[in-house]
Structures are given as structure tokens and as C-alpha cells.
Amino acid sequence: MNKLTQLLILIVRRDLVLAMRRRADVLTTLIFFVMVVSLFPLGVGPEMDMLRKMAPGVLWVAALLASMLSLGRLFSADYLDGTLEQMLLAPQSLSVLVLGKMISHWMVSGLPLVLMTPVLGLQFDMSVQAIGVLMLSLLLGTPILSMVGAIGAALTLGLRGGGVLLSLLVLPLCIPVLIFGTGAVQAVSGGLSVSSHLSLLGALLVLALAFTPWVTAQALRISME
């Protein structure tokens, strides 16, 4: 097996083990997501027509906020106990290492949201088809949030008030993902083809995969100075 693949698997496994031994963190993100989504009907009223229309936007914005919440932890634990120093000194590609952390972050904080979506979709009376497309768009979109967010997390490492600042930096950059993600669901509800939305999301995912690990690695080196 290739050395870089081995490194990638090592990091993903390590972070997943750590997350399993600190399960509370994972659960808080998920509960936050469910709670934010459930608050909307209380805020705007229970008319099913309106809720059905709002559902993709509400779920997407809630997913965006939930992933911002969990991004603060992406590097901070490793930064505080010195592991990040050792990672920067690893004689192997830092970009691959960062990619490993992004993947595990998504598996812990993005994937549960995707899996939770059907239940929340039913709360908003979405059609089965719309729920399917919503899950697909979240499946393609949430990894981008983790990857773009990682840049922000690396830049705000160790800063006071880093959490709020992180959202300020990252949220504008995530707008295209939000637009294409919700657009796909609205398209399917309107009886239109979803392929253009989803392929644009896919293109963004490929772009993010190609560039964000390297950019995040540079950001980490800047922040560790």
C-alpha cells in the first residue's frame, strides 16, 4: 500500500477513535442541528405549505451552522496538547495529513447530519423524492463545508474569540454550496432536473479536494509561527 494512503488511514482512524472516546462532542453537534431545525416551525407557524417550501433552506442553514460549531475543535485539541507541532514536523505530506483530518471531521460531524435528514424532512412534510435529493445534496455539500471550514479553523487557531471569527470568515465562502444545495431540492420539488445543481456541487467538491488541503496546510504553518 502506498505510504500516503497509509498516513491518510492512520489519521482518519486516530481521529475516529478519539471522537468515539469523546462521544459527547459528536452528539452535541447533532442535537444542535435537530434543535435549530425544530425551532423554525415554532418561529414561523405550522402551515405545512410554507414549511415544505422552507425545508431545504432551513436544513441547509442549520447544517452550515452545525458544522461551524464543530469546526472549532478540528485543530484546537491537537494545538493545545502539542500534537499539531509534531504533525507539522512529520516528514510526510502535511496536506495529506490535513486531508485525513478533514475526512474524519466530516464523518463525525457531517455524515450524522445527512443520516438525520429523513426524520427532519418528515417533520417538514417533504416528499420522499425531495428528501432523497436533499440527502444527496448534503452528502456532496457537507464535505465542502468541512474542507473550506478547515482553512478558517487553521487561520483562527489559538485566537481569543476564535469561534465567532471562524464563522465570520467561513460563512461567506460557503454561500455557493448553500445556493446549489438548496437549489437542487427546490428544482426537484418544482419538477425540474436536478442534475445541473448536483453536478455543480460535485465540481465544487472536486475543486475543494484539490486545493483546500494545501491551503489549510499553509494556514497551519502560518498559525504555528
Binding site: 477513535v17 478519539l18 472516546r21 469523546r22 493545545l80 496538547d81 502539542g82 500534537t83 507541532e85 509534531q86 514536523l89
Partner: peptide, 12 residues
């Protein structure tokens, strides 16, 4: 390099 911080994870 061995710094002030141990780079040890409490959970492991």
C-alpha cells in the same frame, strides 16, 4: 523535536 508540550492524547 520535543517541546514543552508532550503531544500526548489523554484518551489514548
Amino acid at each position: 523535536y520535543l517541546g514543552h508540550l508532550n503531544a500526548i492524547k489523554d484518551e489514548l
